Amino acid sequence: MSGTFTAKEVAEHNTVDNGLYIIIDNNVYSVASFVDEHPGGSKILKRVGGKDASKQFWKYHNESVLKKYSEKLKVGTLKEEAKL
């Protein structure tokens, strides 16, 4: 599954039951199936669910982590929205 999402659509996926989407560098990932596997615990993923987690992600991970899990977790990209 690969699609384009608005920030509002991602925000609606802010719980495990809703798919728990996060944004990292304009890519959208569904981490609901990864919550129990996350080495840092589920709490942090639940806290950033529905939001841009780029800053938090890069603080603790390097690019190899994103490459390792990207194929499994990526569901799409963030749609560019017009700025008013």
Score class of each variant (00 low, 15 high):
25 D>Y: 07
30 S>Y: 00
79 K>Q: 15
54 S>C: 07
10 V>G: 00
77 T>S: 14
50 G>T: 02
71 E>L: 09
22 I>T: 05
3 G>F: 09
38 H>W: 08
55 K>V: 12
77 T>Q: 11
62 N>I: 10
60 Y>V: 13
75 V>A: 06
43 K>L: 10
47 R>Y: 07
26 N>G: 05
52 D>F: 00
33 S>P: 05
37 E>T: 05
29 Y>Q: 03
45 L>G: 00
81 E>S: 14
32 A>D: 10
51 K>Y: 02
48 V>C: 04
58 W>T: 12
58 W>Y: 12
82 A>W: 15
46 K>M: 13
44 I>E: 11
67 K>H: 13
27 N>G: 01
74 K>M: 11
62 N>Q: 12
15 T>G: 01
8 K>P: 00
36 D>I: 00
56 Q>F: 06
62 N>T: 11
43 K>Y: 05
56 Q>E: 15
49 G>V: 05
75 V>F: 05
44 I>C: 06
51 K>Q: 15
40 G>Y: 04
81 E>K: 10
17 D>R: 03
5 F>I: 04
84 L>V: 12
29 Y>F: 14
52 D>S: 02
21 Y>F: 12
28 V>E: 02
32 A>E: 07
26 N>W: 08
11 A>G: 04
71 E>Q: 12
79 K>N: 14
28 V>L: 03
36 D>R: 07
84 L>K: 15
16 V>F: 00
72 K>D: 08
9 E>C: 04
4 T>A: 11
32 A>R: 03
8 K>W: 02
4 T>Q: 13
13 H>D: 06
50 G>E: 01
